[in-house]
C-alpha cells in the first residue's frame, strides 16, 4: 500500500501547488486545466529533481581529488539512452493528449448559449447584448453557457479571464469566439493580453457573474437609461464608451489625455499656439474631431478616437452635462 500513500501525497502536493499560484477556479474547465497543470508541475518537479539532484550529487561525489584523477571511459550506453528518450516521449504524448481533450472542449461552442458581442478597441472593451444594451463590463448569469463573439475595431486584442482559464484573440476583420459556464458568483478581472499600444495595460474590465434573476433585472434597468437625469446619463456614456481609460475625473493626474477634473470653463492652450476656453463647443469638437485642437503637451496625432457618427446629439449633451458637473 506504500505506493498509494505516495500517490496520495503527490496528489495533495499537486493540488496545493495548483491552488497556491492559480487564480480562483470559477468554471469547470478551470478545474480541469488546473488538474492538468498540477500534473505537469509534479512531473516537472520530479524531472528537475532527477536532473538537478543528480547533477549536484555527481558534482559533490566526483569532485576532483588530485590532478591525476583517472576517470571512467564511458562513451555511451544504448539501453540507458533508449530509456531516457522513450520515457520523456511517453510523458510528452500523454500530456499532449490530455491537453487536447480539454482544448477540444474549450473550442467546441455549446448550442443554445447566451451570445454576447464583445468588441475590442484601443483601449477598451465594449459589450453588446441582444436587446441593445451596451456596457463596458461583461455581466453574465451564473451556471449558464455563455458564448462571447469577439471582434476588433482596430488592432489585435486578446480577451483573457484568468479565473476562467480562457483567452482568445480579437482579430480585426473577422470574428472569433470563446465560451464559458461560470459557476461562482462574483467579479473577475478581464485583461487585454495582446499588445495594442499606449494604454494596453489599462485595457481592463470586469466580468461580473450574477444570479439569473439579477441578470434579468440588470438587463432591463440598463435598457432603460433614458429616464435618468442628464448628468447621470452622461456618466453612463462616459463609462460605457470607456472615456475613463484615458481621462481621469477625480484627480488632475494625466492618464493618456487631459484630466477632466475641474477643467470646465478654464482657459485652454492649443498646441498650435492659439488659446480658447474649455467650453461646450470645445468638448464637442474634441470628441467628434479629436485631431483639430490638441491641448498643448499632448501627443500629435492624438490617440483619441473620433466619435463622429457614433454619439447622438442627445448623448453628446448628456456627456457635456456630466463634464460640467466635475467642477
Amino acid at each position: 500500500m506504500n505506493w498509494l500513500i505516495v500517490m496520495n501525497k503527490l496528489l495533495l502536493a499537486k493540488s496545493a501547488v495548483a491552488g497556491t499560484f492559480m487564480p480562483v477556479q470559477a468554471t469547470e474547465i478551470s478545474k480541469q486545466v488546473d488538474n492538468l497543470y498540477g500534473f505537469l508541475v509534479v512531473v516537472s518537479f520530479v524531472s528537475c529533481a532527477i536532473l538537478i539532484g543528480g547533477m549536484i550529487y555527481f558534482a559533490v561525489k566526483y569532485k576532483r581529488k588530485t590532478q591525476n584523477d583517472k576517470t571512467a571511459y564511458i562513451t555511451h550506453d544504448t539501453r540507458l539512452e533508449v530509456l531516457w528518450s522513450v520515457i520523456p516521449l511517453i510523458v510528452f504524448l500523454l500530456v499532449f493528449a490530455w491537453g487536447w481533450i480539454i482544448y477540444h472542449d474549450m473550442r467546441t461552442m455549446p448550442t443554445n448559449a447566451l451570445e454576447i458581442q464583445v468588441t475590442g478597441k484601443q483601449w477598451a472593451w465594449s459589450v453588446d447584448y441582444k436587446n441593445g444594451v451596451k456596457a463596458s463590463e461583461v455581466v453574465v448569469p451564473v451556471n449558464r453557457d455563455v458564448k462571447l463573439i469577439l471582434a476588433s475595431d482596430d488592432v489585435i486584442h486578446s480577451f483573457y479571464v484568468p479565473s476562467f482559464r480562457i483567452k482568445q484573440d480579437a482579430v480585426p476583420g473577422r470574428y472569433t469566439a470563446l465560451w464559458f459556464r461560470a459557476e461562482k458568483l462574483g467579479e473577475f478581472h478581464v485583461f487585454c493580453t495582446e499588445y495594442c499600444g499606449t494604454s494596453h495595460s489599462r485595457m481592463l474590465t470586469k466580468l461580473r457573474v450574477v444570479s439569473q434573476a439579477d441578470f434579468d433585472k440588470w438587463l432591463t434597468e440598463e435598457s432603460d437609461v433614458s429616464g435618468l437625469p442628464l448628468a447621470q446619463r452622461g456618466a453612463k456614456i462616459f463609462q460605457t464608451r470607456a472615456c475613463a481609460s484615458c481621462h481621469s475625473v477625480d484627480s488632475p493626474v494625466v492618464k493618456v489625455g487631459p484630466s477632466l477634473k475641474a477643467r470646465w470653463g478654464t482657459p485652454l492652450n492649443v498646441e498650435d499656439g492659439t488659446t480658447g476656453v474649455f467650453d461646450e463647443n470645445y468638448v464637442r469638437e474634441s470628441v467628434m474631431l479629436p485631431q483639430q485642437k490638441i491641448a498643448k503637451g499632448f501627443p500629435k496625432p492624438s490617440p483619441m478616437p473620433s466619435f463622429q457618427g457614433q454619439l447622438s446629439e442627445a448623448e453628446m449633451i448628456a456627456l457635456i452635462e456630466y463634464i460640467k458637473g466635475l467642477n
Binding site: V33, L40, S44, I101, T193
Partner: peptide, 27 residues
Amino acid sequence: FLFLFAIGGMTGVILAVTAVDVHFHDT
C-alpha cells in the same frame, strides 16, 4: 545552465500543452 535550462525546458513543455497554454499565453 543545466539547472536553469531544466526549468526553462519543462515550462516549455507546459506551454506546449494546448489547454494549459490558453491560460499562460502572453502572460
